[in-house]
């Protein structure tokens, strides 16, 4: 499939070059190239096991890259530690939410600001609650007792509390009702409009392609296709393989 890269600004926020990574059992990613411009919303789609979550893991420092490079705002951050990447502005909302289940919603959100020492943490908490009003009267509830959609809100909110330049959300829609997904996508787009770059990883390809500016299709650990989300959506291969059209 051809490269349809378009609309990438000359100075990307995130630049991934020939990235290879994997686990003891074997490599998962083979020579990934990927760019995200500041305030861009990029979809990362592909089948189960294509390497989407592993890629996010490498970008947030949980998984080591075996070769290739990652740079953030022009600075090399290949294999930087997770806490360093958080400090530099990368927030990763992991698959399955991964909340601190026995802690309160408020503690979960405040933990998102763990590395911050500025005086605006409370103000940001209010902003997160404005994005997700449903959480307002649930601040003292144990996070594990919330519904799936509310837990996803807490997970995204926890990511936002770090004031990221790049927010990566893994499997936003997994296990959630379509109405809830629509709402969360709207919020994601609002976050994006307010200046945060976003990588949206989705198995629900249509949801992701409709929301994003650009998209990358991952197949077996390689970028099979990339380009404007609207173009990717019209690609015959994508329509056949992922959209059932």
């Amino acid at each position: 499939m051809s490269d349809m890269r378009n609309g990438v600004s000359p100075e990307p926020l995130l630049e991934v070059r020939r990235l290879t990574a994997g686990f003891d059992a074997g490599p998962v990613l083979f020579g990934i190239d990927l760019e995200v411009a500041p305030s861009e919303l990029v979809a990362l789609v592909g089948a189960n096991g294509a390497g989407k979550s592993t890629l996010l893991g490498v970008l947030s420092g949980l998984v080591r890259a075996t070769s290739g490079s990652i740079s953030l705002a022009g600075e090399d951050v290949t294999n930087a530690r997770p806490e360093v990447l958080v400090r530099k502005g990368v927030a990763h909302v992991p698959q399955g939410r991964r909340l601190f289940g026995t802690m309160s919603v408020e503690k979960n959100l405040l933990l998102g600001a763990y590395l911050r020492r500025d005086g605006e943490i409370r103000g940001d908490l209010v902003r997160v609650l404005d994005l997700f009003p449903a959480l307002k009267d649930k601040l003292s509830r144990e996070a594990g007792t919330l519904s799936g959609g509310e837990q996803q809100m807490v997970a995204i909110g926890r990511g936002l509390m770090a004031r990221p330049k790049l927010l990566m959300v893994d499997e936003l829609s997994l296990g959630l009702a379509p109405k809830v997904v629509d709402h969360l996508i709207e919020v994601i787009q609002q976050i994006n409009r307010e200046g945060t770059a976003l990588i949206l990883v989705e198995q629900d390809v249509l949801v992701a392609l409709d929301a994003a500016n650009r998209a990358y299709v991952l197949e077996n650990g390689r970028v099979a296709l990339s380009g404007k989300a609207a173009d990717v959506k019209e690609d015959p291969g994508v329509r056949r393989a992922y959209l059932g059209l």
Partner: peptide, 8 residues
Amino acid sequence: DAAQLVGI
């Protein structure tokens, strides 16, 4: 893992 992702 989640702890690492908030910067601990």
